[in-house]
């Protein structure tokens, strides 16, 4: 099995009101050094071993897991994972 870790974030330039609220809350708690917060999503997939896994993951990200109009994604693939 392979473990795929997927990170999805709003594109730079796309307004992230949630991130902004988080940043303001951190500032309120006294962490004045925080200049920006961006809130995203993290997903883990367990995938059967398959030579085309990277091509498939790329497809899954662009078709469903992320919306390319507003989001960027990146992922890592860990080999030899035992369930």
């Amino acid at each position: 099995m392979k473990k795929v870790k997927i990170y999805i974030t709003l594109k730079q330039g796309v307004l992230d009101p949630q991130g902004r609220a988080v940043q303001e809350s951190l500032n309120t708690l006294g962490y004045s050094e925080v200049q920006q917060a961006r809130v995203g999503k993290y997903m883990e997939l367990l995938v059967d071993d398959n030579e085309e896994v990277e091509v498939k993951i790329e497809e899954m990200c662009s078709k469903l897991l992320a919306n390319p109009v507003i989001e960027d994604y990146k992922y890592t693939i860990e080999e030899g994972v035992v369930q």
């Binding site: 709003l10 796309v14 307004l15 009101p17 949630q18 609220a21 919306n67 109009v69 507003i70």
Partner: peptide, 16 residues
């Protein structure tokens, strides 16, 4: 929008 029948996407309301 998600199905691609119309262009663009939705974000959270500006005031959350």
């Amino acid at each position: 929008l998600e199905a691609g029948l119309l262009p663009g996407a939705m974000l959270r309301n500006k005031n959350l």
